[in-house]
């Protein structure tokens, strides 16, 4: 059965770029889902079988850290791995993300190789 990834970013442009980077990295997803903020991401996880999440941090409505915290409190989705993909990769922020279960972080700007190195081991 094919894999599904959920890309969470408020920028439509960045969601397209991440999708393209996943293909360029050779990561073979059958389905690429998108969400514009943490609230939409939680709704998508409730409705779909998702293997891994790539999430921005700085988003309106519900940011990436609030999304991680909410996800970590829901037993139905808490085990789905999340990688942060953001301009915000300071040690304090990444430590907070990891405390809520984030499995890694990719700094924007990124290359397909960096996406592959971070995401590949989780699949």
């Amino acid at each position: 059965m094919g894999k599904t990834v959920l890309i969470v970013d408020d920028s439509n442009t960045m969601r397209k770029i991440v999708s393209r980077a996943l293909r360029q990295a050779g990561l073979d997803f059958d389905q690429i889902l998108e969400a514009g903020d943490g609230q939409e991401a939680l709704a998508s996880l409730a409705d779909n079988s998702v293997d891994v999440v790539l999430s921005d941090i700085n988003m309106p409505n519900m940011n990436g850290l609030e999304f991680l915290k909410a996800k970590s409190e829901d037993p139905a989705i808490m085990d789905i791995p999340v990688v942060m993909i953001s301009t915000e990769t300071g040690a304090d922020i990444i430590d907070e993300a990891k405390s809520y279960g984030a499995k890694g972080a990719v700094k924007k700007p990124f290359t397909p190789d960096l996406i592959n190195d971070t995401l590949g081991p989780l699949l």
Partner: peptide
Amino acid sequence: GELANMLAGSMKAAIDPKGS
């Protein structure tokens, strides 16, 4: 806007390495 966001993130990393 996303270009500005990436540039600002990069400048923030130089100004405030821990990020808080």
